[in-house]
Amino acid sequence: MTAIFFYLFATITVASAFMVISARNPVHAVLFLILAFVNSAGLFMLNGAEFLALLLIVVYVGAVAVLFLFVVMMLDVDFVELREGFLQYLPVGALVGFIVMAELLMVLGTWVFAPGAIGGIAAEPIPNMADVSNIEAIGNILYTKYIFFFQVAGLILLVAMIGAIVLTLHHRPNVRRQNINDQIARNPETAIEIKKVESGKGV
């Protein structure tokens, strides 16, 4: 049963990943990317990593991919024009893909053939999933052994965020802005002045 679902998710992931690079319309490409994300979440789920699966959906599909879609929808990207130099860039792309593939194989290969030879996650004893839940297992290792890496990752993201704000923040002078606190702090005594006007005189 698990095998059926594995092949289902895996086939859709690979097929939609292929569609990402071959779709004519950029928005369709991003939609296929989202489909690939959702199906890889399904693969995580099959491996019993349900927390990671749901996190993948919340973070990547629910937030990051939405921003992707926003940008792609609003930019006028012409894929046909972009594809003109496709053959020219193919060798470079293939080389990068090959390097990533080789590195992944080397890491996983060491893990499979000589567990314990490399440090890190593979050296950790795998907790029994019957007594610890997914979240506890991740939390136990993330906030103890890897706390510094975790904090550094957070700091990098913070720097990226501040950088993005600095790049886009413009203070335009002479723009009237609404100050909600001032508006709430107003009261009838300070805001209006009541004048007694005698009839026939005017103010």
């Binding site: 989202i34 349900e50 927390f51 749901l54 996190l55 959906i57 919340v58 599909v61 629910g62 937030a63 939405v66 879609l69 926003f70 929808m73 839940s133 997914n134 979240i135």
Partner: peptide, 19 residues
């Protein structure tokens, strides 16, 4: 076990219908 996270994840997908 992760009921509330499931609801949060799936309801964050609703935005795709709109976009």
């Amino acid at each position: 076990n992760l009921g509330i996270l499931f609801i949060f994840a799936v309801s964050s997908l609703e935005v795709y219908g709109i976009i």
